[in-house]
Nucleic acid binder design. Structure first.
Length: 558
RNA sequence: CGGGGUGUAGCGCAGCUGGUUUAGCGCGCAGCGUUUGGGACGCUGAGGUCGGAGGUUCAAAUCCUCUCACCCCGACCA
């Protein structure tokens, strides 16, 4: 391709709308163009990279036994009910029938399986598609990282039993590892919460970058890694001696854990904190050790609620609770959930349920009752690993894939059953595997760049080589470069040929911005030696390569 | 949904506080010439519903009201 004919132009100035690195670079290099919030056109360079990513995915999914299909974007709204209603785009056809643009395809694929799978002989089955998805995100951001229209590879496996699902899951897991390796991307596998889709053994593939939306807690000493939504850590026992009798103490004006702990000269870990939530409209009283914080995802899962938010001060007071001095001691008629850290020590300080009053020597379960005891604490870096006791670290990243075992949630709901050898009917056991090519594209740029521009991994670069002639009047640079352009293409090397009459600085800067893995410069200077200059985008210094060797040299590198 | 911000040429911005007839600047774009190893220079030129609607006024990019879009923080989110 000739740069002079390329529809997109590079931008010198950073577009005002672009916030993060990948978004800025993708717009500046002319990979994408925004139409409305969270919706983008792919320009030739961006589209080529996206297709390369998709083809790697296709290839690995096929190797894992997948069959590619293509399901509709337009779905009847009845298929969805209330599920994901908050982020679905809905529309009406001419008969006023309500339709929805598919945000994911569990229902559609399951109804497909219900029609075509009859017998255990039809299983196992792995169906996948690479399809556009629509989600009306509360806040699209970061260019392609969180878009409202985006590409997704979603795969679904169908098996006769859990053991079959385990095999299918492992195959896709391996395929994903291969995909990220082939794309040249550093991706971390972490335990995750399965969220709105449901299911178990949920794993996310997180591409690590400071710009990521997700926080990962991991152990450098072993293989433990989990999304912060899911991560657990050791809650160390706090030695408080033998249980002592309850004691009331005056704590004038002391409300926060810091104030109370400081006033009574105990560490925050010797206190119990009360937190108040509204779960699906119902008031919930939470208890957790004073030095810990509630993880709302874990809390939501324990309460099995759809909607969870902090209670307002008015709601707390209306529930008969004294903010700043609340505890579960003597509490009646309110649902109480406690973090298991309430058992990690004795003689805690807790609220006295009267203004300016706290209790000392509070012990669970001696002094208060709870409805649920579970791990609802947020794990943070520095705490101990639950697997090996090592010191946990944290990092940020972008979720580029998510896989989980659905089981029979959808097959039961949609009547996708099969007959076993004995003629008995069972729901199909399903797995579900998402991977976002468009997000991956942005994430790749986010991870591979410098202050000059993008640094593409070879496998997903829009072209392999940036051919950059620097002609001078009376030289043969142009004709040598034209011939090299033809020869490189004939050798199967993908070339972007900068045939513009621009100054060297402009060409070099555009080459760096677009970030192809190799740059070949042809100039009077190199032609004196019957050579060209080869520069890797990852390296600072170029090398001189004889014209006769450049093609074989490049072929070896690509 | 809460908080904040921005809409003026393809891109980046100034002008708005304190209303004035031809709305500027840089980049980019077109033409000509000079340049050519890290974002060159000169000259000429094209390009604008000042986001939209309504209002105040002799007069509105500028003041007022409404509205739309986009961005950021938060909430939320496979």
């Amino acid at each position: 391709m000739r740069v002079s004919k390329l529809v997109s132009k590079t931008l010198r100035e950073v577009p005002a709308d672009a916030d993060n690195i990948s978004h800025r670079l993708m717009v500046r290099a002319g990979l994408i163009h925004q139409l409305v919030a969270g919706v983008y056109s792919y320009l030739p360079l961006g589209w080529r990279s996206l297709r390369k990513i998709e083809n790697i995915i296709r290839n690995e999914m096929d190797k894992a036994g997948g069959q590619e299909i293509n399901m509709p974007v337009l779905h009847p709204a009845e298929l969805w009910g209330d599920r994901m209603s908050d982020i679905r785009f809905t529309l009406f056809d001419r008969r006023e029938r309500k339709l929805t643009l598919g945000p994911t395809h569990e229902e559609v694929v399951t109804s497909l399986a219900a029609r075509y799978v009859r017998s255990y002989r039809d299983l196992p089955l792995n169906l996948y598609q690479i399809q556009v998805k629509f989600r009306d995100e509360p806040r699209p951001r970061g260019g392609l990282i969180r878009a409202r229209e985006f590409s997704m590879k979603d795969a679904y496996t169908f098996d006769v039993d859990e053991a079959g699902l385990d095999v299918a899951y492992d195959k896709v897991f391996q395929a994903y590892q291969n995909i990220f390796t082939r794309c040249g991307l550093d991706v971390m596998v972490v335990e995750a919460d399965s969220g709105a889709i449901g299911g178990k053994d949920s794993r996310e593939f997180i591409l690590t970058t400071p710009a990521g939306e997700d926080e990962v807690i991991f152990c450098p000493a072993c293989d433990y890694a989990a999304n912060a939504e899911k991560a657990s850590s050791v809650k160390e026992k706090i030695d408080g001696g033998k249980p002592l009798p309850l004691e009331t103490v005056a704590t004038p004006g002391m409300k926060s854990i810091e104030e109370v702990a400081g006033f009574l000269k105990v560490p925050p870990s010797r206190t119990l904190k009360a937190v108040f939530y509204i779960a699906d409209g119902t008031f919930v009283f939470g208890v957790i050790r004073g030095d810990l914080t509630v993880n709302e995802t874990k809390l939501r899962n324990q309460l099995h609620c759809a909607d969870l938010r902090l209670a307002t001060e008015e709601e707390v007071i209306a529930a008969g609770i004294v903010p700043g001095s609340a505890s579960a001691v003597g509490l009646k008629g309110i649902r109480v959930i406690a973090d298991d850290s309430v058992s990690s020590g004795v003689n805690f300080v807790a609220g006295g349920n009267k203004p300016d009053t706290h209790l000392k020597n509070v012990n669970y379960p001696r002094d208060f009752k709870v409805d649920i005891v579970a791990d609802i604490a947020r794990a943070v870096a520095g705490e101990k690993c639950i697997k090996c006791g090592g010191k946990l670290s944290s990092t940020r990243g972008i979720e580029v894939a998510h896989i989980f075992k659905l089981g029979t949630i959808y097959s039961t709901k949609l009547g996708a059953n099969f007959l076993d050898e004995k003629g008995e009917s069972h729901p199909i056991v399903m797995g579900c595997y998402g991977l976002g090519p468009s997000r991956l594209l942005a994430a790749a740029v986010e991870q591979h760049n410098d202050d000059k521009g993008i640094i593409w991994p070879v496998s997903i670069a829009p072209y392999h080589v940036y051919l950059c002639p620097l002609p001078r009047e009376g030289s043969k640079v142009t004709e040598v470069a034209e011939k090299l352009y033809q020869d490189l293409q004939a050798a199967g090397i993908e070339v972007l040929f900068d045939d513009r009459a621009e100054s060297p600085g402009v060409k070099f800067n555009d080459a760096d911005l677009i970030g192809l893995p190799f740059r070949i410069t042809v100039s009077p200077r190199t032609l004196e030696k019957d050579a060209v200059e080869l520069k890797k985008r990852t390296e600072k210094d170029p090398q001189i390569v004889p014209l006769s060797e450049i093609i074989s040299k490049l072929k070896a590198l690509i």
